[in-house]
Write a protein that binds this DNA or RNA. Sequence first.
DNA 1: GAGCAACCGGAGGTGCCCTCCAGATCGCCT
DNA 2: AGGCGATCTGGAGGGCACCTCCGGTTGCTC
Lengths: 203, 203
Amino acid sequence: MATSTVRTPAGAPARSMRADARRNYDRLLNEARASFAEHGTDASLEDVARQAGVGIGTLYRHFPNRQALMYAVFQEALAALLARSRELAEGDHPCHALVEWLGAVVTHTGEYRGVAQALMSATRDETSALARCNTPLREAGARLLARAQESGAVRAEVSIDDLMQLTNAIALAAEQAPDDPALADRLLALTLQGLKGPAAEQG
Amino acid sequence: MATSTVRTPAGAPARSMRADARRNYDRLLNEARASFAEHGTDASLEDVARQAGVGIGTLYRHFPNRQALMYAVFQEALAALLARSRELAEGDHPCHALVEWLGAVVTHTGEYRGVAQALMSATRDETSALARCNTPLREAGARLLARAQESGAVRAEVSIDDLMQLTNAIALAAEQAPDDPALADRLLALTLQGLKGPAAEQG
DNA sequence: GAGCAACCGGAGGTGCCCTCCAGATCGCCT
DNA sequence: AGGCGATCTGGAGGGCACCTCCGGTTGCTC
């Protein structure tokens, strides 16, 4: 996966683009970012095109569907998350690292309302461009989880798929309650510690 | 809250309805139930009306918006959940009862794709008819949680709001992965037990 | 600067949402 | 029984968004 200086969002054109095309591509991407952040990922694509000063046909030329656009927008958040995972993988507190990274996932996902949902459904839909986001995320998470499990801090039965799915679910819950920004943290803490108290029955 | 033999879905007419009106109301409700189950709660309302053999205007007369229709459809599941909670509240295993009830919530929610999401956003939107679903659910959950906490099986800091939100989130995750029906159970189990293993660091 | 491939953009077909109101229908009342 | 008003019906219609398609335009190459 060659991540050169030029965006290569697996489906959007990367190699030598005509100057006007690149200009429009960038405008669209910027406008989509702003629009998704403000109105969520179900913002009107015609609005995005209009705001970008570009015809709707041009938008669809560059991004054949909404998912492709979301993928492109989500790219940099993805890169940041992968970088963070590498950073955390070198620290001394595997469990803490895992939880902190999951928190970062939730935060980044929450930047655009609707991304969590889209990522979740994309998990099982190979055809979606967004599915390509999930694989690297999953692998980054898997490394952190494995380390935490080796250290004994996390139970061995926990699977990375379940954990990522739950994290996405938490992100989704958090974005439904924008007036309670600490919700995500509390839910993650809940996940970490579980419900069980001192006198827990055995399940 | 008088639950007589006649449906009284708080917004849909209850008192003496003309015979033709009641007939259409019932047809619409049945068709909506089927349609939501098959296509999710974002099914076309015009389809619902068409399938019910009724004009679109009639649908909107009875259910001023999609939420009202969802509310009416979700009523019986809601009643079942409340009944189940009363049943479980009398058993001997408070923690087990709580978890089982949460499982039932996830199951019923999952019958209609989209309900989990709608319920979650309705939590913070008083104007929505669906918000009226949440309050009784929350209270039923609160009773079960309180009992589990009194018995010491569940940590005292856990709040019912967080727990319900997380449960909804799990329901949502589960409905995104229809090919893995056990996902919800695993995620609930994860919530119950937490990630922590034998040598957990303190968080 | 000529030619052509790449690109632009918006008209247009489709589908859905929701409103509105003229006409059909019901059921009470005499 | 039959009339009459309140109630209900249904679909036309305006608005919006999606996405496709293709005539016209632009940038790049030689």
